[in-house]
Design a protein around this nucleic acid. Structure first.
Lengths: 192, 192
DNA sequence: CCTGTATGAGACATGAATGTCTCACATGGG
DNA sequence: CCCATGTGAGACATTCATGTCTCATACAGG
């Protein structure tokens, strides 16, 4: 009797909501369900209809991040050509998911319960295998373990993503800065 | 009239409490004040007598982390000798504070309010200057910016600290793995 | 021995986020 | 045109961490 109308309703788009949530939580990991809903342009009620709770939302983001990483890994063709080129392709393909990965990387509560997603293990295994292949082909040094190189890759991706968010780094340098540091290091090459 | 006794009282040791809090929060960044108190071996009341609230506790940890970093920087003598050796010393000296740094690195809420501690800026400036000095002396390549190298150093320190906590990496490799990757990279050197 | 200080234990109120619910309304298909 | 589905807005209870309080007890110094 009182309201004139509600205006247009926002149709629910799971993927759009997840990406909005990822973008917000990357900047503010303690954001409320209400803030997430507003950022996604839907009501808290609708958000809660599709994700049982905050845990379920974070789990969905985890699955999304794993899926994007696996897609990036597929697109990078880690078994083809020189390992260093495969790493280069992997970093390039993983850039769109960098923010989401940076958020998930800090959600250490994901790895507390027994129900940790085994997708991470699969990813770790495949990336580790890439670095191991580079070692066996003689491209990479053998004194840096593949496990550490994998961990360092995650860390550099997250670091660069935060640096971009905080305005200290330029987004366009993502692939170059990460790959050059990871593969070549900071020391200048000997002029041989 | 009912209790027989309270047992021994725990004398308050600010430094010990802060280190226990840092160790716990590094593993579980959402730990309760109650959990922090238990981890420190004191009661929640006492914890709250010395730190006005959770914010104050985190701020104190931030100050502690900055102080330890500055002490590490002093001990590393960043202006003496080759820049690569100074970086090596810096990583070695910073290792005891790695866990605390990893925690603070993810507390992005610290950088939201206007009251962000300017100690970080001082540290960034000094570490950046070290990398810039290495570039000017010809030791480091110039296509990786000092700001990025500084950011990467933080990221690698945090990554290794978490890898140790999760049991994927060995604590004794801290300095070697970080310095070798940061300075030398993963690619094998050309046999000249 | 007595006293002041500081702690531990626990009760209590407060506030925030969460989860559930109802109802009005918009949209699309029959 | 009518109905089913799905959304927005908001009320509501619940849970939990927080912050404050009181009181009994332990310890150190006089």
């Amino acid at each position: 009797m009182s309201h004139m109308g509600y205006g247009c309703l926002m149709p629910f788009d799971r993927d759009r909501v997840l990406r909005a949530a990822a973008a917000l939580l990357t900047r503010k990991s303690t954001a409320t369900m209400d803030e997430v809903a507003k950022a996604a342009g839907i009501s808290r009620a609708t958000l809660h209809r599709h994700f049982a709770g905050r845990d379920a939302l974070v789990r969905a983001l985890e699955s999304l991040g794993i899926a994007e990483c696996e897609a990036a890994l597929e697109a990078a063709r880690p078994d083809e050509g020189p390992a260093r080129d495969a790493v280069r392709r992997l970093v390039r393909e993983i850039e769109p998911a960098a923010g989401l990965l940076a958020f998930l990387y800090t959600e250490n509560q994901l790895f507390e319960g027994e129900e940790q997603n085994e997708g991470w293990d699969r990813l770790d295994e495949r990336i580790t295998a890439l670095f191991r292949r580079g070692q066996e082909s003689g491209e990479f040094r053998i004194d840096l373990t593949p496990v550490w190189l994998t961990e360092a890759l995650y860390g550099l991706v997250a670091s660069h993503a935060w640096g971009v968010i905080d305005g200290r780094l330029a987004g366009k340098d993502f692939q170059y800065m990460i790959v050059e540091l990871l593969l070549g290091g900071a020391a200048r090459r000997e002029e041989s």
